[in-house]
Design a protein around this nucleic acid. Structure first.
Lengths: 214, 214
DNA sequence: TTGAAATTAAAACAACTGTTTGATACAAGT
DNA sequence: ACTTGTATCAAACAGTTGTTTTAATTTCAA
């Protein structure tokens, strides 16, 4: 049985999950080396297999741990009964921040983003449990902005247009820096970027809505 | 010296570059296995080192070969003196097709997209030589649509909003399929998608332009 | 204190993968 | 015919990396 006081046992488990979180997010499942993880966690290689049964088990534990750490849901965005345009602004700003800052609470978003673009064995679980709800929330906002006549298809296309813009700045970081050396990933500039994506997307939604009307 | 008649020598080189192109595009530099490449090319492992000096050399040859195969430039889009909005539609459609069809001519675009999101040692070369010109062309179109008062910054932000949308459908293929099971990567639907991204982005550009004006 | 269970640690292991080697074949020029 | 440079191939090699083993240690209840 696992010890109850803060001894080495649970400590090792936690330290492993902690450093594994960082390294999995940084390099992805495949490029993350167990040796690096255990070194950062100041423990032994075998500890991974002992506590988690292997690399995949450790990854699963990382997902579970970080899922518990942060409420992934974006429902606050829609629950505050603001205008749907404001809900969208909030959604975009929150999503971008989660992708681009180093907050521990944001780890789960980064893990999801990684799965979306670079699936592992946990893809189905992560998408089902996290990506789908996130998308549903955004789809709801899109629907509210586009109006009741909007097709499910345009709703989904618009959601993906927004997600695509946000993901680009996370996944193509190096290219962004090269194509726009002035661009900074500072919190202030991330807010400005969120504003741009929001303005751009609101315009896009208006165009798509009118397109339908005509 | 390499033989001049169509013997095995040049044949092996070409077969290697051909199968390497496919496999590098499919799995990326790191996950591409030399064993798989030489098997598909029906030759020996050592051939890679003999002809190209190693895996990196083969990758470099793949880049060079595919760069020569297809004119990457998008200038036709701006050279036909159409309205800038039409230039943008053309740009998006062409770019999307290059990312999503299996045309041999499209390989270079896929290699560039991969570098943007998953840089290798060839990143600087590829970006400098290919991504920058592509972006410059798009920036020019953005500038034409946004008007002469548009800041360089909004021009770049808008370009990246467009690129981000396009890349999403390539890199997040599996997630797209899951989040929208009806979505098809058929040529016809790619055209429809290009229309959506164009409509959405045109609306976005209008909004950004007005935003400046106000 | 003692003994069983849990945990940690180092080393051995096995699979994978890019590279090198050494042998061989072949074509072309002398 | 002989030599030389080119090309191919199988096998050996070396580095990396996840896993297993086996022994040592720690913890905790009796």
């Amino acid at each position: 049985m696992r010890n109850l006081q803060p001894d080495q046992t649970t400590d090792t488990r936690l330290r492993l999950i902690e450093s594994a979180s960082e390294i999995f997010i940084e390099r992805g499942f495949k490029d993350a080396k167990i040796r690096d993880i255990v070194e950062q966690a100041k423990t032994n290689r075998a500890a991974v297999n002992y506590h988690f049964g292997g690399k995949e088990g450790l990854y699963a534990a990382v997902l579970q741990h970080n899922a518990a750490l942060a409420i992934q849901d974006m429902s606050p965005a829609v629950n505050e009964a603001r205008a749907p345009e404001e809900q969208m602004r909030f959604y975009i700003r929150t999503f971008l921040k989660r992708l681009l800052d180093d907050n521990i609470q944001s780890r789960m978003s980064k893990l999801i983003a990684r799965e979306v673009v670079e699936p592992t064995a946990a893809f189905d679980l992560v998408v089902e449990q996290f990506a789908v709800p996130l998308h549903k929330t955004l789809n709801g906002i899109m629907h509210a902005i586009l109006g009741p006549n909007a097709s499910e298809e345009s709703v989904r296309r618009c959601s993906m247009s927004i997600i695509g813009q946000c993901l680009y700045y996370q996944r193509a970081r190096r290219a962004v820096q090269r194509l726009d050396p002035d661009f900074s990933y500072s919190p202030a500039n991330i807010d400005r970027l969120a504003d741009h994506i929001s303005d751009f997307s609101l315009g896009g939604l208006r165009a798509v809505a009118q397109q339908r009307a005509s």
